[in-house]
Nucleic acid binder design. Sequence first.
RNA 1: GGAGGGGUCGCAUAGUGGUCGAGUGCGGUAGUCUUGAAAACUACUACGCCGCAAGGUGUCGAGGGUUCGAAUCCCUCCCCCUCCGCCA
Length: 438
Amino acid sequence: MLDIKFIRENPEKIKKVLEDKKIPDAVDVDKLLELDKQYLELLRKAETHRSLKNELSKDISKVTGEAKDKLLAEATKVKNDLGILEQELDVVKKNLDEELLKLPNLVSDDTPVGKDESENVVLRRWGKPTKFGFEPKDHVDLGVPLDLIDIETATKISGSRFFYLKNEAVLMQFALVQFVLQTLTNPKIIAELAKKVNNPYTNVFTPVVPPVLMRPEVMNKMGRLNPIEERYYIPSDPLVLVGSAEHTLGPIFMDQTLKANQLPVRFIGYSTAFRREAGTYGKDMKGILRVHQFDKLEMETFVPQEIGLQEQDLLVAIQEYLMQQLELPYEVMILCTGDMGKPDYRQIDINTWVPAQNKYRETHSADYMTDYQARRLNIKYEDAEGNRKFVYMNDATALAIGRTLIAILENNQQEDGSIKIPRILQQYLNGKEIIVRK
RNA sequence: GGAGGGGUCGCAUAGUGGUCGAGUGCGGUAGUCUUGAAAACUACUACGCCGCAAGGUGUCGAGGGUUCGAAUCCCUCCCCCUCCGCCA
């Protein structure tokens, strides 16, 4: 949600953003401003009536007899008039809010303007696409013989897009978790990365295991409930399954005002993510790239306005650091206006090299939402001067376990089908260096 | 799931229809005193919205209702506590 005052003063900017994000008809800005005008008019009228009503009530308590009856009659009339006004006001306010919620976030200056994913811009690449002296296999052909992945059984038990993870793959999952948690709680590493991107905050992350079921109305405040077809919904309670730890990390401070010295807040959350993947039939059907349930480590941070962008830079720096430690080739891409999410002010993705597909596939996303989410969630902070402002929120993948495992299996495969375990993870697997067929 | 008790201004509490946006204590901020500090004393100490301002308006878990008037009465929902049941 955007600040209505900003919209009033900058309608042209709003129209341009709608244009750039390729949703020109999502909101009629002129109609929105007209509604806003009506709203303010009705509000003033209603408040005048309320004032009169309050005045009369006070007077009534002071008089008796005929004078009282007269005032009572008058008060009843004012009350009825007010009722009608309030009804009108409610309708206009509801319409106005609906329009406001449809507006996307503004866009950073360095975001490229473009129509769709084809106009995203690669900022840099690290490592080189892995070369093999043989035809590389995909993660299914590698993982099934090694007894790391069992999709067939999962299909029987749970349906398509589910999988069992087994043996070293499980050990690697928890190795990755350990590795990420240790990195993000290491003061030296975070301080170094922060310095690199000019971020003044050296604070480490607070590890969190959040709930994976949540109230739909809270998810809606996060701006993540829709499209609802993408969510698993449990009507009997009623609750939705999260699509990311972000969904329950972001609202932690809902309806709160944080003190200046409480910021920054940095969470590293670990949870399972649930996605219905409605409308993706036939897409990425092989393997575990696109599934209904996967585990993910997610960073969520809250900072003051001035630091918002550097905070995103830090989150990207962390993502890159993790990938470099895992020795996986990747590219960093800034999404163009036509491809970025509605709440995003700037969105940066990391794509990791997937040899069997001979291309980079999305493994990470870093979303800088400015105060767009905080306004809906009503999360504020008090700056040094005591002014209250909405907090600036960042959200970014630390590691999506499933897709990282795909990258590890495929990039580290040997001709005989065995898999080299990344050096950094070996300590968590009793020093094991390679996964071979039993 | 059953029975009972609760949700008030950072915290703890007072407040059962009009003078309550709300008292008190603690905490916090500033000042007086002091070489400095502590103590003591004094003052201040929610936020949203409309308005250039004066001011107005709304908020006592949330939403509805009764009433000229609701923190206070009624209904629905949410949450917390105690006991019982079930359970990793």
